[in-house]
Amino acid sequence: MGEMNSAFIVAAIGLGLMIGLSGSGSAIGLVISGSSAMGSLKKRPEAFGALLVASILPSTQGIYGFVGYFIYSDLVTPDISMFNASLVLGAGLMLGIVALVSAIYQGKICASSASAIGSGHEVLGQGLVFGALPEFYAILALVASILLKNLAQ
C-alpha cells in the first residue's frame, strides 16, 4: 500500500510540473510580449494584426505541456509502478523546465519585435524567426518526453 501510494504521488508530481511549469512559462512569456505589444499599439493602432502574431509565440509551450499531459495521463493509475512513475516525473521536469524558461525568454524576443513593429520597422517575419529559435528546445523536450514513454512497462 505504502509503495503504491508513493509511486502515485511521484507520478502526480510529474504531471503537475509538466502542466504547471509549461503553463506558467507561457503565461509569463505572453505577459512580457503582450505588454510590449500594447505599448506599440498606442503608436500604431493599425498594426494590431502584426502585433498579435508577433506576441503570440510563447503560447505554444503551454500547449506542449498539455500535449505531454495527454500522453502521460493514461499511465497514471492508482497502481502505477515506481518505474513508470519515475518516467512521468522525469518527463514532467524535462518538459516543464524547458518550456518554462524558453517561453519566458521567447516572450522577451517577441516583446522586442513588437516594439520594433511599433516604431515602424516591418520586421514581423524576422521577429518570428528569432522567436522560433528558443522554441525549438521546447519542441525537442516534447519529442524527448514522448520518446521516453516508449520505456514505460
Binding site: 500547449i63 506542449y64 500522453i71 525537442l140 516534447l142 519529442v143
Partner: peptide, 13 residues
C-alpha cells in the same frame, strides 16, 4: 525534427 514534432503536437492537441 521540428517538422514531425509540430505536426505531432498539433495532432495530439
Amino acid at each position: 525534427i521540428r517538422l514531425f514534432a509540430l505536426g505531432l503536437a498539433g495532432g495530439l492537441l
